[in-house]
């Protein structure tokens, strides 16, 4: 009886342990193409295709020191293979990398990419399957980014 009880407990605890450590990997979070979102008067953006919506006022304040005149800003956003969101906009000097958390986006890294602000930034996924995001700015040489910073091009 005692042996049966011990065995049952062991099996149950194994099942419970197994359930809690179940993982599916690898997961590819990457968006095939960036989204260009127009910020409304309240600082909100909504991405209908990938279903994400958030308020960017703190981000705009961080970049420009202005969280009032936010309407019409064209936010460019892309998600990399690991699920990090890369965001920037015209005139920005930085690219912001966010990690998703429960009901929020947490800043992972602020990457300085331009001293004067970018005229026409755009994001591309890496065509060769590397885990990088390409940052384009007009005719400038693309900068390869990861969540930890610049990997190639620009100033590391």
């Amino acid at each position: 009886m005692k042996t049966f009880f011990v065995l049952s407990c062991s099996v149950l605890s194994l099942i419970a342990f197994g359930c809690s450590s179940l993982t599916l990997s690898p997961v590819h979070y990457q968006w095939p193409v960036e989204s260009v979102l127009s910020v409304d008067g309240k600082g909100n953006v909504e991405e209908p295709r990938n279903f994400i919506a958030f308020n960017v006022k703190p981000l705009l304040f961080e970049e420009t020191g202005d969280s009032v005149h936010v309407s019409g800003v064209e936010l460019r956003i892309i998600r990399d293979v690991d699920g990090y969101y890369f965001m920037t906009a015209p005139k920005f000097k930085n690219v912001y990398v966010f990690a998703s958390d429960e009901g929020k986006l947490k800043l992972e890294k602020k990457i300085v990419v331009s001293e004067t602000g970018m005229a026409s930034p755009a994001f591309n996924q890496d065509k060769e399957g590397r885990p990088y995001i390409h940052l384009l700015n007009g005719k400038e040489k693309p900068i390869l980014l990861s969540k930890s910073g610049i990997q190639q091009g620009g100033q590391k």
Binding site: E34, A122, K141
Partner: peptide, 16 residues
Amino acid sequence: VSAVSFAQEQSDYEIS
């Protein structure tokens, strides 16, 4: 080679 390759990179968003 790198000059040619970066000169040719277009924004995927713009292409789309």
